[in-house]
Amino acid sequence: MSDPSEEYADPPESLAGRLLVASPELTEDVFSRSVVLILQHGAEGAEGVVLNKPIGASVDSVLPGWQEGASSPQQLFQGGPVALDSAVGLAGVRGHRDVELGLKRLFGSIAVVDLDAPQEVVWPEISGLRVFAGYSGWTKGQLEGELAHGAWYVVDAHAEDVFDPTPDTLWRRVLRRQAAPLAWLSTYPADPSLN
């Protein structure tokens, strides 16, 4: 097998701020029917978080005090298979002014939260909060290879996708709002053999 960094050597167009929607054929654990928000993407690789995989643990179980401001469902989400012992916090930032202490705007109204910052400084500045255990990561050329093989569909993100209160249906709803034929995949059965 060839080295993906050699096959996709040209710097990619950045997908930061966009969504990767798993194709129905991608059935690998956390990525099965996943919707991934790309946080950063460049020549050296990409990082993102899976938006629709709550793990049933409260946010306070790993980050005491952050549960209060977490968006519904107030659970920890699995951001991906990498560094599951670390936490990534994303917040919706109000307005277009510069963000304050404890927040770093990534794109649009989405910011990463410094989870060591005083909560009383962060709460007034945000409109939503989601905390992820781990993240999804791709090395140089890896994501480009997966895209070329049809593992993911790249679509525009809406800020409400990040803080969606019903993550179990997010995959279908993101596909449904796309133009045909991509929208038709929203009806793809979880188990095609039962069709």
Score class of each variant (00 low, 15 high):
105 R>N: 03
80 G>D: 06
127 S>D: 12
54 P>H: 02
87 A>E: 13
84 L>Y: 06
107 F>S: 04
112 V>A: 11
107 F>R: 09
65 G>H: 14
61 S>E: 15
78 Q>E: 11
125 E>Q: 15
132 F>Y: 12
77 F>A: 01
76 L>P: 08
129 L>S: 02
86 S>L: 14
95 G>T: 10
127 S>V: 06
79 G>C: 07
109 S>R: 11
81 P>C: 08
117 A>C: 12
57 A>L: 15
102 G>D: 02
57 A>T: 14
95 G>V: 07
65 G>L: 13
91 A>E: 01
126 I>C: 03
68 E>Q: 14
74 Q>D: 05
107 F>D: 04
126 I>Q: 00
117 A>T: 09
109 S>N: 09
89 G>T: 02
125 E>N: 12
68 E>G: 11
95 G>K: 10
57 A>W: 15
113 V>Y: 00
73 P>S: 11
73 P>E: 10
116 D>G: 12
109 S>G: 09
101 L>N: 09
114 D>G: 04
108 G>H: 00
90 L>W: 03
133 A>G: 12
62 V>N: 05
93 V>N: 01
128 G>F: 00
88 V>S: 02
97 R>N: 09
117 A>Q: 10
126 I>N: 03
69 G>C: 06
131 V>K: 07
67 Q>M: 03
112 V>G: 10
92 G>N: 05
114 D>W: 03
70 A>C: 10
60 D>Y: 11
114 D>V: 04
86 S>V: 13
65 G>P: 14
60 D>I: 08
68 E>P: 06
66 W>I: 05
58 S>I: 09
129 L>M: 04
117 A>G: 08
101 L>M: 10
100 E>A: 14
109 S>H: 08
131 V>H: 06
53 K>G: 01
84 L>M: 14
